[in-house]
Design a protein around this nucleic acid. Structure first.
Length: 920
RNA sequence: GCUCGGGUGGUGGAAUAGGUAGACACGCAGGACUUAAAAUCCUGUGGGCAGAAAUGUCCGUACGGGUUCGAUUCCCGUCCCGAGCACCA
């Protein structure tokens, strides 16, 4: 009987969905396991073959865990708010909800064909009001909380107000904006408006003035992770810095916890490094310098990690945006400073980056006093100092910082070396090593001793303190767009006021157009009569990461109308055990989600500190393009091997018209009218195409669609081939060339169960040799799946099937466990064979620990020979070795024998497929 | 510039508590079945040298050193590729 994959797959997919085979519920009698994919943004282009890679891996793992008896939560949904749908809406007038809906339908069809074991009853869409209700709810909770440094967690604003009423903010140690201290009396005397303004500084979701990434082309602000190399990630438009009042999330309050808790996660080191880098902890000191503009004296704070170099400070530098600029610019320098500020302001981020090495700056006219040397040093302004880091002002030590060095050289400022014997004639000496000199009481110490000693002295003199700084900034949470979650905030007498939780969801209003208004307001300003109790509602919407920050919690309890997730569901499912997705979210979603979760943990809403215990990054699938070579000025195409003999143009050809780099000439002629009369210069009767690895995209004609593969080879082949392509975490080009091998394997596997046309398995008991084939496989597959090395498991299946053919085995005792083992990889074909074996229940429904756990074997040989010491020989056991063969192997290694000397081997232990242990 | 990965046949890739390098698959070549094709099956396939052949032998995991009886695996240096960060004081 033929392996009719089309019919089999269709039938079983229907069976799974009709019988809700993958639906799960809380079940306290069984251990849970939560496997999550990063949910997709449903784009108009549909899925290409690269998208399902991670989904297939997580599906295999889910199915395997189910086989082992776990209650597996494996949901899927859509990250449905986003820019492309909105931009499409601007162009066509079509409502983004409609486009999104259409795209989701298409995605669902494509996903269904691949045979995933999702519990679709738990599907979420971030643009669904019943879902974004909870995004808005979380925002309101953040609005209603502040971060207490003393307790290290978020606490209620209402409690903070009681403290203010009793004792002002003297004893409050909070993560907040400006820290103007006030007493209880002055607090109680504040107007409502003043109180609201003070509280805003403390809230975890707050409205504040900040320097933002403004993208004029998109008409919106962007978060740091949405900007790469000075361009917007979506669309690649230029981005500039602009001061604006925006909603923000106080992510920076969680810097330390976000950093420290990384240690307990099973993520790859590279990903943890990326997050550590992004959080950017640096330990140093804050130090006060007296500065004077000739009329007035101020205390100016700076941050440094090299307090030891304070004797070498020869000037100070301010960021152009620093508030000190205005205070310290003298009358004589005013014009020059203004000119410089104008120059700096006009630059986009990108220009600033491109000109990284260009030294620019201007003198303020003011001087500071070095607190250790009492010397007067000039205060400059330069764009190499960033407003957003530290205090936006630095002490410059040109001898030991390369940036200060080039600045000093450019403007002819003095350079004082502080380390014995260092050569600073060409460049600064940045390394933290050597013996200090020219440094007063620090002279003679090593740098490592001097750093703490200097900080100690600074603290003793009362001019500063030890300080840890983080690079991580608060997340800008407003977007001037239509297609996102509206803020449940209205402005009562100009005061930002939260709506009642009962009023949620606040639905997106209808608008006539999706563009910003003529006066530059966000699209929501177009909504008519959109008010709350007569007051205006916030016009921005939330960013893309809002909806994706807690979706994994919603899956646990998706239909709960009273809570984001109910207590019972949260306490059972807890957190994601395995999360699979791309690295592109390393510094975006994966930070925000962790922050969001920690906040919910603080307010007692969820029971785990971290959302994603184990995380695997699947590699990207690139496209493999094919080329034909047209002889210039003709309609003749020359085969790859002969192209150098002609003057040719390389042209992309649709990879679907090519197989194994051989061009299907007939299909090529039909492809485009201009090729209908093409002529070909062949080699050996064939046209060979050139190839290259490029991004998978329509314009390169290298997009391969999973539907096509399912049509031609079946979903089981697609699933296995994607895994067979190479290690999961590695990026690799899609190359359909090898797919026949996997397909052939499935056909061979199928035929093991048939004798000509009839289903035929033997009920005889298996021989030791046959058992060994199975046991070896069980061991290997178990090990491989736990280490996500699916490509080698597939090889192991191929080997096992080849061996079964070799010994002519069709015994149920062997084949049935093999079916179970294979079912996570190829669920359709195994269901079919399983039912042909006479089982009534779906293979996906039951658990079979007996088949996959209890089959490992150890063969032990008593083996007397003559060596000394302990050794292990690693040998590929593609077949069982006899004692004789082992002896021969060892004796054929004369150097080894010499090394071991004369003694006796007592025992040889063989673990199938692994290692020979020789115990002496 | 800094931080991580990674360099193995014609191709994708196996093998790292050091132990027969190239599993498995693709491709290619030859053969069987067939009127033919598809499908299927069998054989060979890192390179050099010797041999009619079985086979023997030397060289081979980016390059150069080192440790070791033994190194793709560990250490040092060099080159190349990929990813991330990038004036973070």
């Amino acid at each position: 009987m033929e392996y009719n994959f089309l019919e089999i797959e269709k039938r079983w997919q229907k069976y799974w969905s009709d019988n809700e085979v993958y639906k799960v519920e809380v079940d306290n009698s069984r251990p849970k396991y939560y496997v999550l994919d990063m949910f997709p943004y449903p784009s108009g282009a549909g899925l290409h073959v690269g998208h399902p890679l991670g989904y297939i891996a997580s599906d295999i793992y889910s199915r395997y865990k189910r086989l082992r008896g776990y209650n597996v939560l494996h949901p899927m949904g859509y990250d449905a708010f986003g820019l492309p749908a909105e931009q499409y809406a601007i162009q066509t007038g079509q409502h983004p909800a409609k486009t999104t809906d259409k795209n989701i339908k298409r995605y669902r069809e494509q996903l269904d064909r691949i045979g995933f074991s999702y519990d679709w009853s738990r599907e979420v869409r971030t643009c669904d009001p019943e879902y974004y209700k909870w995004t808005q709810w979380a925002f309101l909770e953040m609005f209603a909380h502040w971060y207490n440094r003393k307790t290290g967690k978020a606490e209620k604003i209402s409690d903070l107000i009681s403290v203010f009423e009793k004792e002002g903010n003297i004893n409050v140690n909070a993560e907040c904006g400006e820290e103007n201290s006030f007493t209880a009396d002055s607090w109680n005397a504040f107007t409502d408006r003043e109180k609201a303004a003070v509280l805003m500084n403390y809230r975890i979701a707050y409205l504040g003035e900040t320097s933002v990434n403004w993208c004029a082309a998109l008409g919106t602000v962007l978060a740091n992770d949405e900007v790469k190399e000075g361009l917007s990630v979506r669309g690649g438009h230029p981005v500039e810095q602009k001061k604006m009042r925006q909603w923000q999330l106080r992510v920076s309050a969680y810097s330390e916890r976000l950093l420290n808790d990384l240690d307990n996660l099973e993520w790859t080191d590279s990903l943890k490094d990326m997050q550590r880098n992004w959080i950017g902890r640096s330990q140093g000191a804050e130090m006060v310098f007296k500065v004077s503009n000739g009329l007035k004296e101020y205390d100016m704070e700076i941050f440094t990690t090299r307090a030891d170099t304070v004797f070498g400070v020869t000037f100070m530098v301010l960021a152009p945006e620093s508030e000190w600029v205005e205070k310290l610019t003298t009358l004589e320098q005013k014009a020059a400073v203004e000119e410089y500020l104008n120059y700096a302001k006009k630059k986009t981020e990108r220009e600033r980056m491109a000109e990284t090495r260009k030294v620019t700056g201007v003198f303020t006219g003011s001087y500071a006093t070095n607190p250790f040397t009492e010397e007067k040093i000039p205060v400059w302004i330069s764009e190499y100092v960033l407003a957003g880091y530290g205090t936006g002002a630095i002490m410059a030590v040109p001898a030991h910082d390369s940036r200060d060095y080039s600045f000093a050289k450019h403007f002819n400022l003095p350079v004082i070396p502080l380390i014995e014997g260092c050569d600073i004639s060409q460049e600064s000496f940045d390394a933290k090593e050597g013996i200090m000199c020219n440094s007063g009481f620090l002279s003679g110490m090593t740098v490592k001793q001097a750093i703490p000693a200097a900080i100690e002295e600074v603290e003793k003199r009362g001019i500063g303190r030890r300080k840890v700084n983080y690079r991580l900034r608060d997340a800008i949470f407003s977007r001037q767009r239509y297609w996102g979650e509206p803020f449940p905030i209205y402005y009562k007498e100009g005061i930002a006021t939260p709506m009642d939780m009962e009023k949620l969801p606040l639905r997106l209003p209808e608008v006539d157009k999706f563009l910003p208004t003529e006066s530059g307001e966000p699209p929501l300003a177009r909504a008519e009569n959109w008010t709350f109790e007569g007051y205006p509602i916030e016009k921005s919407t939330m960013p893309g990461f809002a909806g994706s920050s807690a979706y994994y919690l919603r899956y646990m309890d998706p239909h709960n109308s009273g809570a984001l997730v109910g207590k019972e569901a949260d306490e059972y499912w807890r957190s994601v055990d395995l999360y699979i997705g791309g690295t592109e979210h390393a510094t975006g979603h994966l930070i925000y989600s962790r922050f969001w979760n920690k906040f919910l943990f603080d307010i007692g809403y969820v029971c785990e500190q971290e959302p994603f215990k184990k995380l695997i990054n699947q590699g990207m699938i690139q496209g493999r393009s094919n080329f034909v070579y047209r002889v210039k000025g003709t309609n003749t195409f020359v085969s790859y091997g002969l192209k150098d003999k002609y003057d040719t143009t390389e042209i992309h050809v649709d990879v679907n018209k090519v197989s194994n780099d051989r061009l299907d000439i007939a299909a090529f002629k039909e492809w485009m009218p201009e090729y209908a009369n093409a002529e070909f210069i062949l080699e050996d009767g064939e046209y060979i195409c050139g190839w290259a690895v490029e991004k998978m995209s329509k314009s390169m004609f290298n997009v391969v669609n999973p539907d096509m593969i399912c049509e031609n080879y079946g979903a089981d082949t697609l699933r296995m081939y994607e895994m067979f392509l190479g290690p999961l975490e590695q990026s690799k080009p899609w190359d359909t060339n090898g797919i026949d091998g996997v397909h052939r394997f499935l056909k061979r596997f199928w035929r093991l169960f048939f004798n000509r046309d009839s289903f035929c398995v033997s009920l005889e008991s298996a021989s030791a040799k046959e058992q060994k084939i199975l046991h070896k496989l069980i061991k290997k597959i178990g090990d491989d799946i736990e280490s996500f090395s699916f490509n080698t498991s597939i090889s192991a299946f191929m080997i096992a099937v080849n061996e079964l053919y070799e010994v002519g085995c069709n015994k149920k005792e062997i084949l049935e466990p093999m079916l179970v083992l294979l079912s996570p990889f190829a669920p359709h074909i195994t269901e079919e064979l399983w039912s042909l074996l006479g089982h009534n229940e779906s293979i996906s429904k039951a658990s079979f620990p007996q088949y996959i756990e209890s089959y490992t074997v150890e063969d032990t040989f008593e083996y007397p020979v003559s060596f000394n010491g302990k050794m292990r020989f690693k040998v590929a056991l593609s077949r069982s070795l006899s004692a004789k063969e082992i002896e021969e192997y060892i004796i054929n290694q004369p150097d080894t024998v010499k090394y071991l000397g004369e003694s006796k081997i007592k025992k040889v232990i063989i673990v199938p497929g692994k290692i020979i242990n020789i115990v002496c």
